[in-house]
Amino acid sequence: MMTKFLSRNRHTVQRLGFSVITLVAVFTVLPIIGTVIYILVKGGSAISWEFLSGFPHDGMRAGGILPAIIGTLYLTLGTAVFSVPLGIAAAIYLSEYARDNQVTRLIRLAIINLAGIPSVVYGLFGLGLFVLFLQFGTSILAASLTLSIMTLPVIISTSEEALRAVPQSFRTVSISLGATRWQTISRIILKEALPGILTGVILGLERAAGETAPILFTGAAFFLPRLPHSAFDATMALPYHLFVISTQVPEMPIQIQYGTALVLLVFVLTMNVIATVIRSRARARRQW
């Protein structure tokens, strides 16, 4: 055992092992970069002002994808309206108010479970509760509510982490100066945790913007010749549109497919990059 442990060739073993692990990491990361670059290159030529600002025509085989872009914007904003206040409030509860007891543990378990539920099951739930039971119909409202509940766990857990990172001493000092708990939170803690919360919110909304399954039966429209008029209208959306034109429409020009994928990817990646930048800038600037 000891001789094996100290044998001469153990450094060779280490060199070999490190090479294998490094290769594994490279093979994990390369396809990610490859995917992004491939879509940027293939889709780039499809992008034009008409493509971004026009309506689809000829059975979606020509024209632009404006209604899908606007629809995804609406859905993302609609999701934010519900999930951001609720998610941040829940995070405040867990970080600032909750005691370590059975109920709190149950809440945490519930959040973990919400994070694990398959997206298509959210779609079923949205259909059952919002579309049918509450009779919102297939609409932006129903889809946004469904996406909101799906995004909650991301927003809650990242926001809670950001709140907990604010030094405890700020709370003690503020309370000792006659502040109530809420005054302390609203005047100091939230302000300091803001970059972290913002990062979490954007990452959550990024997920909502790219999802297809939850909106399949709650708000996505196959084709709309106009923009939605109200929250009770169904809407086209980029991810669903990409699904439709790559599987449901025969003889679809490949250019339009790659172009749509590119727009969706840029939409999502922009949010991702913004979140990363906010996080690293806040880390560099932080004084505690």
């Binding site: 990610i32 995917t35 879509i39 990452l203 990024e206 997920r207 913007a209 790219g210 999802e211 297809t212 991810p239 669903y240 990409l242 699904f243 790559s246 994928a261 969706l264 990817l265 999502v268 990646l269 949010m271 991702n272």
Partner: peptide
Amino acid sequence: GLPSVVLG
């Protein structure tokens, strides 16, 4: 963060 529909 890549949408699953893009991978599909």
